[in-house]
């Protein structure tokens, strides 16, 4: 079970961490993230469904080659080592995957991939209307995202919005795009006002989406910034605190099937290895045995 506390930034691009070559840079940036008040961050990797079709063609030519479409999750070892070294309390780092897709066929391949299951959080970013309706009806993910570079071109309506909320989705706004240039800012404000019009800005989360450390702002700045995105004072706070924490909780639920129950033996003096069992009911035979985990 992942225990997380606020504040949250559930989208920091992988490139931000890969660009920090020396350990000192990494230490500095993690320190300032901690000083800002962030306690849970997620390293984001994205895949586009346009690239996968190229992969498909390749496979037809060379049927032996079994390459996974989904990238291997970013190795958090280096970050976690630094966190342990700095003795930052309650600082959690997660993996997140953003899937940009225009057809549901390609999506099927992605969800069946083995790497897909290794990610903690999954964000869906449909680019066409059929893909959007598919997301509303049957896709299992945690976050509904979109690319602020393009105009928000979905025909949103109240029914779809509420459908997504009922299925535990949260709507994401990437604020670093708003800092970078005014077109992205316009798109972002447009989208957030649509969310306000159709769903009263329910279940909105803010995350940075930053590729450079200079584009990360403190959570209190973001709470204030929420006003121009049409959120109320309370919604602003929950957009960086309560809603992302629900995202993390929901993601645990999604990864483990219908019912989640962790049975842990806390008395460590009797047994060295703490066994963690899950009772899954009917889901047991359909899912993989990797759901039985050993955790300390």
């Amino acid at each position: 079970m992942i225990k997380t506390t606020g504040f949250y930034d559930l989208c920091i691009q992988e490139s931000l961490f890969t660009s920090l070559l020396t350990n000192n840079d990494l230490i500095e940036s993690l320190k300032s993230l901690h000083n800002f008040g962030y306690r849970t961050i997620a390293v984001n990797q994205s895949i586009d469904d346009g690239n996968i079709e190229v992969g498909k063609k390749k496979k037809k030519r060379e049927p032996r080659e079994t390459q996974d479409i989904v990238p291997v999750p970013f190795n958090l070892k280096r970050i976690q080592d630094v966190v342990a070294q700095l003795q930052l309390e309650n600082f959690v780092v997660l993996n997140r995957l953003t899937v940009f897709f225009s057809h549901q066929e390609a999506l099927h391949k992605i969800t069946k991939s083995t790497n897909y299951k290794k990610f903690h959080i999954i964000a869906a970013a449909p680019t066409t209307m059929p893909a959007f309706t598919f997301t509303c009806t049957s896709l299992e993910a945690d976050i509904f995202s979109f690319n602020p570079e393009n105009k928000f071109n979905m025909r949103l309506n109240r029914k779809h919005y509420n459908l997504l909320i009922d299925r535990g989705f949260h709507f994401e706004l990437l604020y670093s795009a708003a800092i970078q240039d005014s077109t992205k800012r316009k798109n972002l404000i447009h989208a957030s006002h649509l969310f306000h019009a159709f769903g009263k800005s329910k279940n909105i989360i803010f995350s940075s989406g930053a590729e450079n450390f200079m584009y990360i702002r403190s959570p209190y700045d973001i709470i204030n910034l929420g006003f121009i995105f049409g959120l109320s004072e309370l919604q602003c706070k929950s957009a960086v605190f309560h809603c992302p924490s629900k995202v993390v909780l929901n993601s645990v639920g999604r990864r483990h099937g219908k019912a989640v129950m962790f049975v842990e033996n806390i008395e460590s003096e009797k047994e060295d290895v703490i066994m963690l069992q899950e009772s899954e009911g009917e889901d047991m035979e359909t899912d993989q045995p990797r759901q039985k985990k050993t955790k300390i």
């Binding site: 708003a178 800092i179 970078q180 800012r185 450079n212 200079m214 584009y215 702002r217 403190s218 209190y220 700045d221 973001i222 204030n224 910034l225 006003f227 121009i228």
Partner: peptide, 23 residues
Amino acid sequence: YVKLRSSLTLASRYEGTVCCYII
């Protein structure tokens, strides 16, 4: 106050170089 603070959050340039305001 809200206007000033949000524009400080979204400010990213100082005389052509990247910068950020920390409150």
